[in-house]
């Protein structure tokens, strides 16, 4: 039998008969993601939302660096201007350019959003995976504990956590908001792990004697990836709104630092004369939340075609 040069490199390390299936598994995996991608880009609303989302991110990251205005410099002679060519979004009470300041606030708001979402995912995955994978009494106890935590209302819980840390800054906000909102993710992950655990292929893996950590790390957690990607876009807007609420009632980021919530609070004080000062940061929040919601919907439809509406 003549072996083609191309085949040799691929089949190294496995008996020929199994090479096909071994090579087949990852291919199937990638085509799954590719299918999801094709389904996603056919969803016009989700694509638009994703693009706007990226534009907002880019604006927040890049604009403060290239803007001609210093977002911290107070100049009362320029205060509370309406939008103009020089200042497309006007200026605030202290004469600072709103276009620049909004980008700066976005860095903090979205930054806290992503940081808290990551913390939520880490805690949620660890808690949910342990609870669901081990099961039994431990699972029961952990879930009852979660039930009790669900009883703690979100904002008061975050406020108390902030009070415990004692200092209000980027990281304490991140921790407070994450601590108050990881429960749902933990439940989702637990549910997913339990479903996967009962799958035939996991049972088969167990039957051939694979170790539990290998099953968990290699077979179960990678399969919760889809759920987790969706969770990012569900938690992110919730955290951004949470940060905005906290800052708005004066328990969050405080001036001269900016976050969208803190900017809205500042704008609120002069809403009668300069309504744009509260409208601009609020609309920024709304756009981000709206985009994240649409992206989450699009991802859900793309990753789980069963729930797709016709």
């Amino acid at each position: 039998m003549v072996v083609q040069p191309g085949e040799v490199t691929r089949d190294v390390g496995g008996p020929g008969a199994y090479a096909g299936t071994a090579a087949g598994a990852p291919i199937r995996q990638t085509s799954l993601w590719r299918d999801a991608w094709y389904r996603y880009i056919r969803n016009r609303a989700a694509v638009l939302a994703g693009v706007v989302f990226l534009v907002v991110l880019a604006y927040c990251l890049v604009w403060p660096a290239v803007s001609p205005y210093d977002p911290y410099k107070v100049d009362f002679s320029q205060a509370r201007q309406n939008p103009s060519l020089d200042h497309p979004l006007g200026t605030d009470r202290f004469g600072r350019d709103m276009l620049t300041r909004t980008a700066l606030g976005g860095r903090v708001s979205i930054g806290i959003g992503f940081a808290a979402t990551i913390v939520i995912l880490v805690i949620g995955v660890a808690y949910g995976a342990i609870s669901g994978f081990i099961g039994g009494i431990l699972d029961n106890g952990m879930m009852r504990f979660l039930d009790a935590l669900y009883g703690l209302p979100y904002l008061p819980f975050a406020i108390i956590t902030l009070a415990i840390i004692g200092d209000i800054n980027f990281w304490s906000m991140t921790v407070a908001l994450a601590i108050a909102s990881w429960f749902t993710t933990a439940r989702i992950v637990r549910g997913q792990v339990i479903t996967l655990k009962e799958n035939d292929y996991i049972r088969a893996t167990r039957a051939i004697g694979a170790r539990w950590y290998r099953i968990l790390l290699r077979h179960i957690l990678p399969n919760t990836l889809g759920v987790l990607i969706i969770a990012v876009f569900l938690e992110l807007p919730a955290v951004v709104l949470g940060e905005a609420f906290l800052s708005f009632i004066g328990l969050g980021i405080s001036p001269p630092e900016a976050s969208w919530g803190a900017m809205a609070q500042e704008g609120r004080e002069v809403y009668r004369t300069s309504p744009h000062l509260i409208v601009i940061p609020s609309v920024a929040i709304a756009v981000l939340v709206l985009c994240a919601n649409f992206v989450a919907d699009g991802l859900r439809d793309a990753l789980d075609p069963r729930t797709r509406e016709t």
Binding site: P237, L241, A244, F245, F248, A264, R268, Y271, P275, I278, V279, S282, V283, I285, A286, V287, V289, L290, N293
Partner: peptide, 11 residues
């Protein structure tokens, strides 16, 4: 669902 309630209230 996306617009924060403080904007709605202020408006």
């Amino acid at each position: 669902f996306a617009v924060p309630s403080f904007l709605i209230a202020t408006l």
